[in-house]
């Protein structure tokens, strides 16, 4: 994958933007089309995503990759598209299991903050999200290196897909719900330990345990 110069992109250099589009426009298009299905709509939203990327590049946050930046904008355009089509922002799906996929969840209301929330609170949430993302990636890398792919699948099902313990026990042929709860608990403990290694003063897990628990 090519390297791109953020400075050149921010300087609105046409050839750098042309290279970026060359690399990412097919991927962004396919990502959008997976969700909206219609080819023309996918083209339009992809175009809007790149135009949004140009307009927002001055504020690019280097804690994210360009790929995350572009996919993030594309995702927001897709969410806005579904919001316009369907006034109720949150999918009131009677069958929760039908949303057990990234695509099902992507179509739900965006968790973007409302305009009147304070900039300070927003930055705090952003910092916490970035910290949590970092330790999650570290934990996933540990599981990958250890070959613990079954555990990774279960945790992805529980966390990323919002799956219930009972569903997970059935789906992954695990003894019972308690065993799944144990996997979840040990994962949270490990994440907590990783957070402490990075910042002993962190409060990412504040309140999860009842007061007085050791």
């Amino acid at each position: 994958m090519s390297d791109f110069s953020i400075a050149n992109l921010q300087a609105l250099d046409e050839s750098e933007w042309a290279r970026l589009e060359e690399e990412y426009s097919p991927r962004i298009f396919f990502y959008v089309k997976k969700q909206v299905q219609d080819h023309q709509t996918a083209e339009d939203l992809t175009q809007e995503a790149f135009l949004g990327a140009v307009r927002g590049i001055a504020n690019f946050d280097e804690q994210y990759t360009l790929e995350q930046y572009l996919f993030g904008i594309a995702r927001n355009r897709v969410v806005d598209h579904f919001r316009k089509k369907r006034p109720i922002p949150i999918s009131q799906n009677d069958d929760p299991s039908s949303s057990r996929s990234y695509i099902g969840l992507e179509r739900m209301a965006s968790d973007r903050r409302t305009p009147d929330e304070s900039a300070v609170a927003f930055e705090s949430v952003q910092n916490k999200s970035a910290a949590l993302a970092a330790i999650l990636k570290e934990y996933v890398a540990e599981l990958w290196m250890a070959g613990e792919f079954e555990k990774l699948k279960i945790l992805e099902f529980l966390f990323a897909l919002g799956g219930r313990n009972k569903e997970a026990a059935e789906r992954f042929d695990v003894r019972d719900e308690k065993a799944i709860a144990g996997i979840k608990f040990r994962a949270i403990e490990r994440l907590r330990a990783l957070a402490r290694q990075r910042d002993p003063q962190h409060d990412l897990f504040e309140g999860l345990w009842s007061p007085g628990a050791r």
């Binding site: 995350q68 995702r75 949590l132 999650l136 990323a160 309140g207 009842s210 050791r214």
Partner: peptide, 30 residues
Amino acid sequence: DELKPEDMVPERVERFAMTVGSVWREARVS
């Protein structure tokens, strides 16, 4: 720490799990 699963506050764990889920998807953790 020797924290036990039964010491966890279920509603807060539920909310925390949703936050983890949102970050997991947005940051493409896996």
